[in-house]
């Protein structure tokens, strides 16, 4: 279990994380979702005690990470960039990590096999591809078989096979009762992996919802309308709560009115319709919609 309370981090004048409060529960995969620069990596570093919060607290299994006697046993982490000495082999990297906590050597071989790095374990980590580096990071996260996994953008640089592998791994760990907290800037990825979402933008909490609720909430329909008299129809449909977006010449997209309402009004006015299509937005679009305010705030903030 990860508990974050009123967590704030400022770098000079810049507020990277702004009073975040949320809880990550065991037994499920929790996605930490937000556009680039939203403060995900910073939050994760604070949870692990790498960055000191400006204010607020973060605990893992009831205590600040650094106060556990065997921190690696409590939480394993894969951080965004490669956190490995480029001159050292994967094997010796893991061996040195394991030695700090008394994790037996046999477990090092075990995690190397688990992530599929057996062939290259004795090679310099600096020669690894991004995907191999991610696998090494996951191996070190799993070293002490921790209760909590914190993975920062783990699918970055992985090939499709690697992505499937990591999805399965995370779901397996969660099914085994572990707390899995994984960040991503891709809604589509999270929809496939996570059961719960913590959504952030500009360092602030935007949503803390189950994926099922999020999808339902996101299912706001729009209707694509095509007509030879599009301009007249556009004026006819305008009204409070209705937004229209021009798609191309003679076609626009309407939200806030159902397809039958649009069809009836067009018929009453004698305007011919060439197309009337109900559209459900993609999850990605729903996510963009959700975080749009946060992004807009950024633009305004920068101008001010």
């Amino acid at each position: 279990m990860i508990e974050v309370h009123e967590l704030t981090k400022r770098y000079g004048a810049k507020t990277a994380v702004d009073s975040l409060t949320f809880t990550v529960r065991p037994g499920i995969v929790t996605g930490f979702l937000g556009p680039n620069g939203a403060g995900k990596s910073t939050t994760m570093r604070m949870i692990l005690g790498l960055d000191r919060p400006t204010s607020g607290t973060a605990t893992i299994n009831g205590r600040p990470y650094a106060e556990h006697t065997a921190p690696l046993r409590q939480a394993g982490a894969l951080l965004d960039a490669k956190a490995v000495h480029t001159g050292r082999s994967a094997y010796h990297h893991l061996l040195a990590m394991a030695a700090t906590t008394g994790v037996p050597r046999a477990r090092v071989d075990e995690v190397i096999d688990l992530v599929g790095l057996h062939e290259v374990a004795r090679k310099r980590a600096g020669a690894f591809s991004l995907g191999m580096g991610q696998r090494l990071g996951i191996a070190s996260a799993l070293l002490a078989d921790p209760e909590v996994l914190i993975l920062d953008e783990p699918v970055n640089g992985l090939d499709p096979e690697g992505i499937l592998w990591i999805r399965g791994l995370m779901q397996g760990l969660a099914a085994g009762g572990r707390t899995v907290f994984v960040s991503s800037h891709l809604m589509s990825e999270m929809a496939l992996t996570a059961q719960h979402l913590v959504v952030v933008g500009r360092g602030r909490l935007i949503a803390d919802v189950s994926v099922a609720d999020f999808i339902e909430r996101a299912a706001l329909e729009s209707v694509l309308v095509r007509s030879p008299r599009a301009v007249e129809l556009h004026d006819l449909l305008a009204g409070p709560g209705v937004t229209m977006l021009s798609v191309e010449r003679g076609a626009f997209e309407v939200t806030g009115l159902a397809a039958d309402q649009i069809g009836d009004r067009a018929a009453t006015a004698g305007i011919a319709l060439h197309e009337l299509t109900v559209r459900r937005p993609s999850l990605e679009a729903a996510f963009m919609e959700l975080t749009r305010d946060a992004v807009e705030y950024q633009t305004v903030g920068a101008a001010a």
Binding site: R45, L48, G49, L50, P71, L72, A77, L79, A81, K82, A83, V84, H85, T86, G87, R88, H93, M97, S140
Partner: peptide, 9 residues
């Protein structure tokens, strides 16, 4: 190299 983050974890 960024190793420090692994070491301090």
């Amino acid at each position: 190299t960024g190793m420090i983050r692994s070491s301090l974890t």
